[in-house]
């Protein structure tokens, strides 16, 4: 989780990724931030996040992002 939090903070350093679970619902992450996160996650975890995965359930919190990454790694 710490590694993921570092990646996220590197993209947007003014967001409390540790506690926020409404990153999409509250408009904290815009489409540019979402795509930067995808590029960073693809690179770091050797996955390819498809566009169909860009849904609030996957991007609302760091925990849901980690869950998605682990699921895609296992596929």
């Amino acid at each position: 989780m710490e590694e993921l939090l570092d990646i996220l903070r590197d993209i947007k350093d003014d967001v409390d990724f540790e506690n926020c679970d409404t990153l999409i619902d509250d408009g904290i992450l815009d489409s540019f931030a979402i795509l930067q996160i995808i590029a960073a996650l693809n690179d770091n975890y050797d996955i390819a996040i498809p566009a169909a995965e860009i849904v609030p359930e996957n991007f609302n919190s760091a925990a849901s992002l980690l869950k998605m990454v682990e699921r895609l790694q296992n596929e």
Binding site: S31, L35, I38, A48, I49, P50, A51, I54
Partner: peptide, 13 residues
């Protein structure tokens, strides 16, 4: 546009 063109295009390898 965001859902069906922007995101699918932007995540292309």
């Amino acid at each position: 546009m965001k859902k069906y063109i922007f995101y699918p295009f932007a995540v292309l390898k």
